[in-house]
C-alpha cells in the first residue's frame, strides 16, 4: 500500500488533471484506488472487473468480459506494484534496464502483437515502483507517481483500506 499522485495530460487541454490519494494492493484479489483530491472517490479492481464509487454509490461497473484489454492493464499494475517483474519482462520481451541507481522498463503492446488501449508503458523502479507513465496512441499520457510504499500482511492492508473509507467527507 502507499500513496499516489496522478497527472493526466490530455492533448489540447489547458492543464493536466491532477489527482492524489491512497492505494491498497491485495495481491491476487483486488487493487483499491482511493482518490482524495480533487474529490473523494474509490475504485476497486478485482478479477471480475472495475467498480467506481462516489459518495458510497456505485457509478461505474466495467466487466473485463466486456473490455478484455483492461485485464492486461490491471495485471500489469498488480505485477508492477507488487514488484513481480518477471511476467512483465516476459510480456515486454525485454529486461529491466539499470539507470542512475534505478531500473526502467518499457512495455509496448503493439510490438507484442496485442491490441490494448495504450501505446506503451514506462516503468521507473527503485525498491518499489516509483513512476509509471501510460502513453496513449493519440498523445494523451498519465504520469502516476507512487510514494510511502510499504509491504504489509494482507489483514493489515484490509484494515487500512477499510479505515481509509472513513476519510470520505
Amino acid at each position: 500500500m502507499g500513496r499516489f499522485e496522478q497527472a493526466r495530460y490530455l492533448r489540447g487541454f489547458d492543464k493536466p488533471i491532477v489527482s492524489e490519494g491512497e492505494f491498497f494492493l491485495l495481491p491476487g484479489s483486488a487493487l483499491i484506488w482511493q482518490t482524495e483530491k480533487p474529490f473523494f472517490s474509490r475504485m476497486v479492481i478485482d478479477d471480475e472487473g472495475l467498480r467506481q464509487g462516489l459518495k458510497g454509490a456505485e457509478v461505474t461497473r466495467l466487466s473485463f468480459k466486456q473490455f478484455p484489454g483492461f485485464k492486461i492493464l490491471r495485471d500489469t499494475f498488480e505485477n508492477s506494484l507488487s514488484g513481480n517483474w518477471e511476467p512483465l519482462e516476459e510480456m515486454a520481451g525485454a529486461k529491466l534496464t539499470p539507470a542512475d541507481g534505478k531500473y526502467s522498463l518499457r512495455f509496448s503492446p503493439k510490438a507484442s502483437g496485442l491490441t490494448l488501449p495504450f501505446a506503451y508503458l514506462n516503468f521507473e523502479i527503485s525498491d518499489f515502483l516509483d513512476v509509471v507513465e501510460i502513453v496513449k496512441s493519440n498523445g494523451d499520457r498519465d504520469v502516476i507517481t507512487f510514494s510511502e510504499q510499504r509491504k504489509a500482511p494482507m489483514a493489515e492492508i484490509n484494515t487500512a483500506a477499510e479505515s481509509s473509507k472513513e476519510k470520505q467527507p
Binding site: 489527482s19 474529490f39 472517490s41 475504485m43 462516489l54 459518495k55 457509478v59 492493464l73 501510460i134
Partner: peptide, 11 residues
C-alpha cells in the same frame, strides 16, 4: 460526478 471519476481513473 461519474464523468469526473471516469476521467480521473488510471484505467
Amino acid at each position: 460526478n461519474r464523468a469526473l471519476v471516469q476521467i480521473l481513473s488510471p484505467l
